[in-house]
């Protein structure tokens, strides 16, 4: 008993916080690595459909993204409600896809051109007409590796 009483009498022990910065830094680095800063604001509503046979896109620098969907409420007044293609940060026509692909291609070393993938983020409720137009433009641009973005079931 006396042992416990002795301890109570002492000043409250200090927690050693010297390793706190290290722990925080560890967390920080984790988030820095997993963070993908979204480079463009989404101007179309995209809810990708679900699928089971999914392939993961690995190298971010080898991926270019094309969004197709209906404009968000903010842009409905100007662009209407019909589905639109978004390239980078602006609405585009399907014929502009070729230039967009070319633009991305020059930023990639030549020996990796074959691994460039186009990620098509398309809203599930869009009809195939606009998608077909985009596909034809991609084929014309020689961009044949395409990934239809989808969520796991």
């Amino acid at each position: 008993m006396s042992k416990f009483q002795k301890k109570q009498g002492k000043a409250s022990p200090k927690v050693n916080t010297a390793s706190l910065p290290d722990i925080i830094f560890m967390l920080l680095f984790f988030f820095m690595v997993v963070t993908v800063l979204r480079d463009s604001e989404l101007m179309v509503r995209v809810t990708t459909p679900t699928a089971t046979e999914l392939t993961k896109l690995e190298r971010k620098s080898l991926v270019n993204t094309i969004y197709i969907g209906r404009p968000v409420q903010k842009y409905e007044g100007i662009y209407g409600t019909a589905p639109q293609i978004q390239l980078g940060d602006k609405f585009s026509k399907s014929r502009e896809i070729r230039a967009f692909i070319e633009q991305h291609r020059v930023s990639v070393p030549e020996n990796q051109h074959g691994s460039i993938t186009s990620s098509l983020k398309i809203d599930g409720d869009v009809t195939m007409g606009i998608v077909t137009d985009a596909k034809i433009e991609l084929r014309k641009a020689g961009q044949l590796k395409v990934n239809y973005s989808a969520k796991p079931k």
Binding site: V34, T35, K56, L57, V63, L138, R139, K145, S149, A150
Partner: peptide, 14 residues
């Protein structure tokens, strides 16, 4: 700022 996006999809060769 983190959005842990998992970019997955159906890979197709046109």
């Amino acid at each position: 700022t983190t959005t842990i996006v998992e970019d997955k999809g159906v890979l197709v060769k046109l």
